[in-house]
């Protein structure tokens, strides 16, 4: 019906659109390649045998996938211990950070006080300072408190480190709680804290879990503070242990290095898969709507 009667200009437009589509798919393909190939290479390296790794003409996928590299990785470095350290430090830090961020987020959204506003700005500003400027005095302060080379000391730093984004995300979720519900609770005779506990927090729960996971991932992935603040090998976290595979000369055993890297990424990746939707929402409410 449309074919024959269609005016030439419309047909041209449709052909142009067809070309446009093709170009879009080509561009998407380039992006997919750029994003995926390094990842594919990392995973593939982790499963290759030493003979394949030494090959002059390396293949994209391992011909004989093996778990040897994982076994060797655990033998070469205290991976399990490092993972437990990371879980303990990042987990505790995330819990504390969210626990103190919830009331703060509520207060900054619901009461427009000068302190709240200053706090929000500070949280943003503090992210912008080069870490050298913070780490040197922090190192000195923690030394006085005997919290250098101590996991609780690092955890304490991570609480403050994860707080800004936790606060940011939670502010978005608090804004989404209808004020009318709180007013209804107030009319029913609930006090401020009772309202917070029995009306606001239950509604925040999904956002709370998302924030908790995000804070955990942030702390699990962190490298700089752990590098400076922890010295003993048995206290090291995952990120720092990974760099030990690189050796002093950078002549690393590639297989175990890749295997350990894959393992170190799994927890973060798992949480991110669960978080995907929330993150996009969090960014929406935090960054775009202001």
């Amino acid at each position: 019906m449309t074919g024959r009667r269609m005016p030439a200009s419309a047909r041209g437009a449709r052909r142009r659109r067809g070309w446009g589509r093709a170009a879009q798919y080509a561009a998407l393909l380039c992006y997919l390649a750029f994003l995926a190939f390094p990842l594919l290479w990392l995973v593939s390296t982790a499963f290759k045998s030493p003979r394949e790794l030494g090959s002059v003409d390396p293949s994209w996928l391992p011909h004989h996938p093996t778990l040897d590299n994982f076994r060797k990785a655990f033998a070469e470095q205290p991976l399990l211990h490092a993972a437990l350290n990371s879980v303990a430090v990042a987990g505790a830090a995330a819990l504390v950070s969210v626990a103190i961020a919830v009331p703060a987020a509520y207060a900054t959204v619901r009461f427009r006080t000068a302190v709240g506003r200053a706090g929000t700005v500070w949280v943003l500003v503090s992210q912008a300072f080069p870490l050298v400027l913070i780490i040197i005095p922090l190192f000195m302060v923690l030394k006085v408190m005997h919290l250098i080379d101590s996991r609780p000391g690092l955890g304490l730093v991570y609480v403050v480190w994860t707080l800004p984004f936790a606060l940011w995300m939670l502010q978005g979720y608090v804004r989404a709680v209808p004020v009318s519900l709180e007013e209804a609770a107030a009319i029913d005779g609930c006090g401020r804290y009772r309202t917070l506990r029995s009306v606001v927090v239950p509604l925040l729960l999904p956002g709370l879990v998302a924030t908790l996971m995000f804070s955990f991932v942030t702390a699990w992935n962190e490298f700089f503070f752990a590098l400076v603040l922890l010295k003993s090998p048995e206290k090291q976290t995952m990120s720092v242990i990974l760099t030990h595979f690189l050796g002093a000369e950078g002549a690393a055993d590639l297989g175990p290095l890749a295997a350990a890297s894959v393992l170190a990424t799994l927890p973060s990746l798992l949480f991110f898969a669960l978080l995907q939707r929330h993150l996009v929402q969090g960014m929406l409410s935090g960054a775009v709507k202001g």
Partner: peptide, 14 residues
């Protein structure tokens, strides 16, 4: 989602 260190290691492999 990836730790910075892993991104560095991965690109060293690349």
């Amino acid at each position: 989602a990836m730790p910075e260190v892993v991104i560095g290691i991965m690109w060293r492999l690349v």
